[in-house]
């Protein structure tokens, strides 16, 4: 069996294992697992609106997943995507309501500013990583809290819409990311995500720069010996990863919410990271895993309404997947330490 096939097989096994444990838990709350899983399926793919709903949920997970992939491939564990998403979302919304521009241009400027905001936010941990070799896992995690609270501050104290919920004024329609269909909020963000995933995959496979980044990710000492400026490249990898994280936030505010609400999209950064890990850092694989998580989330919304099981059951399943994937890595690492290193540099 080739390595790639074995990896796919391992991840599938992890998912099946999680679903099996999930089924046992469902039995424990006196609900039928068959009914629950069928409702999940119906909720995710039951009709065209449901399919669009699944893709709508998939979009932020996919874009955050691509952001994580870029980091993972370059040997950088960007756990700060959540924060980059919040800042990107806020920045795009700000452009949307405060900066009147012609249609089309407005939206593009919004997305560009979101991207810049994400990159700027990760620049601090990236700088310390490059300059002082600070562990980027810790610093990016911590930057999440600051980002979420900072955007809360902006929203509540500086830009709050008078009356109503803690949210900014609505963005101007010129900044809307157009919807794809009339029956759903699904928008061009999905297309952006797909194009992004494909081009990142192409970049890593066919360009020498992509190769050199992968080299740094898998064997930094070797890459350095080969003449790659590892520190500079690590810095850039984090910057690009953060930029894509910011873009994810911009897509959410310009495409779906049309304003920024305090605490508007909790957890997508982490969902994206999990999707990327489950896909072993492959952007194409991330399309599949993001769709899987999107379908779970979308299906769970119907699950909550139509069965007695809680929507949170999918959070449990997601957590079980993470556990079993990590267990695999640990087991593999025992046999072949370099393979373990290559996958996650904890």
């Amino acid at each position: 069996m080739s390595d790639r096939l074995r990896a796919v097989y391992g991840q599938l096994l992890a998912v099946l294992f999680a679903l099996a444990i999930g089924a046992i838990i469902i039995l424990m709350v006196d609900e039928s697992p068959v009914k629950v899983f069928m409702t999940l399926l119906r909720g995710a793919f039951g009709d065209q609106a449901k399919i669009a709903g699944t893709l709508l949920q998939t979009t932020p997970i996919l874009i955050c997943g691509v952001a994580a992939c870029i980091g993972l491939r370059g040997g950088m564990f960007n756990v700060g995507i959540e924060g980059q998403l919040f800042l990107g979302g806020f920045a795009a919304a700000w452009v949307g309501f405060a900066l009147p521009l012609p249609a089309g241009v407005h939206m593009l400027v919004g997305l560009a500013v979101a991207t810049l905001a994400g990159a700027a936010w990760v620049a601090i941990p990236a700088f310390f990583r490059a300059r002082y070799n600070t562990n980027e896992v810790v610093s990016t995690i911590l930057s999440n809290y600051v980002a979420v609270l900072l955007t809360s501050y902006f929203t509540i104290f500086l830009f709050k819409r008078p009356g109503g919920w803690s949210e900014t004024p609505p963005i101007l329609p010129t900044a809307y990311l157009p919807e794809l269909f009339s029956f759903s909020r699904l928008n061009w963000g999905l297309v952006i995500g797909l194009v992004l995933a494909l081009s990142v995959a192409w970049f890593f496979r066919y360009t020498s720069k992509g190769y050199s980044i992968s080299m740094v990710g898998s064997a930094p000492k070797f890459a350095e010996y080969g003449g790659v400026n590892v520190k500079r490249q690590g810095f850039l990898v984090l910057l690009v990863s953060g930029a894509v994280g910011g873009l994810a936030g911009g897509v959410e505010t310009l495409g779906v919410h049309h304003r920024f609400m305090e605490g508007f999209a909790p957890g997508f950064g982490f969902d994206g990271l999990i999707a990327a890990l489950l896909a072993n850092g492959s952007p194409i694989g991330t399309i599949v895993t993001a769709l899987f998580f999107g379908a779970l989330r979308s299906g769970s919304l119907l699950l909550e309404v139509e069965t007695t099981a809680s929507r949170e059951i999918i959070t449990v399943i997601q957590a079980l997947i993470i556990l079993s994937v990590s267990a695999q890595v640990l087991m593999k690492r025992r046999g072949d330490s370099t393979a373990g290193e290559r996958r996650w540099k904890f």
């Binding site: 909720g43 919410h257 999209a265 909790p266 957890g267 139509e306 949170e312």
Partner: peptide, 20 residues
Amino acid sequence: LKLVDTGNRALDYEEQFANL
């Protein structure tokens, strides 16, 4: 009686209302 927990993701709310 049916109780529905929305969770805290704004993205989910509209579908939850539609499902109900």
